[in-house]
């Protein structure tokens, strides 16, 4: 009985589609969250009082905005961001709108993640670059980001996993993917097997991200050999 319904979903490619949707929403959201969060993280780092270009005003305002968004639980933030999605896309339904809300929810998180990676770069290395006559942009591009790269990648792995969990939550807003299958086909029809398969699939995806991430970090980091 239980397996029958699952087999039906599988034969209709619903599970497979769910996997793909989860993966692609996660990937797209991560990419856009970094396009916004990475520069924000760099600005937070640079405008810090011990930073490359201290600017108390910018740092305080940006820090406040980031903290404000970060302190709101993801689901509530996504609901609150639906109007923003409507403004940007002209619609508040469908995967596009969900991805926009996901990006807005994830970008501040990514910004802090990036900032903390950048803070690991020793101040002395930055100072040495300044002594060589590097401009601030050269320092950011040729010193800061390359030196922080392994840590940025580790941070990216954590962010991606967090974003993956956001995509599952987004099912409650009409997002597709494994989260939605677990709710609609599993929970609402009391199909425990479907729920558990979805859980298992998400765990597998997280593990894969983790393994690929750590491998890349190990390959790129030249410090510990």
């Amino acid at each position: 009985m239980a397996t029958e319904y699952f087999v039906k979903l599988w034969d209709n490619n619903i599970i497979q589609l769910g996997i793909w949707q989860t993966v692609y929403m996660t990937a797209l959201t991560t990419i856009f969250a970094y396009l916004i969060g990475l520069p924000l993280g760099v600005i937070l780092w640079a405008t810090d009082k011990d930073g490359l270009h201290p600017n108390k005003g910018v740092n305080t305002v940006l820090g406040f905005i980031v903290n404000f968004f970060r302190s709101i639980p993801a689901v509530i933030l996504m609901v609150a961001m639906i109007p923003a999605a409507k403004l940007l896309l002209g619609t508040s339904t469908g995967n596009g709108a969900v991805i926009v809300t996901l990006i807005i929810a994830a970008a501040p998180y990514v910004a802090r993640m990036v900032e903390s990676s950048l803070k690991e770069v020793p101040a002395g290395v930055i100072e040495a670059a300044q002594a060589m006559g590097c401009t601030n942009l050269q320092i950011i591009w040729h010193v800061l980001l390359p030196e922080a790269k392994p840590s940025l990648i580790s941070g990216c792995v954590i962010s991606t996993v967090t974003i993956l969990s956001y995509t599952a939550l987004a099912a409650t807003l009409g997002g597709t993917g494994l989260g939605q299958i677990a709710i609609i086909h599993g929970h609402q029809r009391s199909q425990k097997l479907v729920v558990w398969v979805c859980v298992l699939l998400i765990v597998v995806i997280v593990q894969l991200i983790q393994i690929v991430g750590t491998t890349i970090v190990r390959k790129t980091d030249k410090r510990a050999r």
Binding site: P122, G124, V125, E127, A128, D221, K222, R223
Partner: peptide, 11 residues
Amino acid sequence: MIFQSFNLLEQ
């Protein structure tokens, strides 16, 4: 300029 902590680019 050189420093006590060398400050090389580790990567």
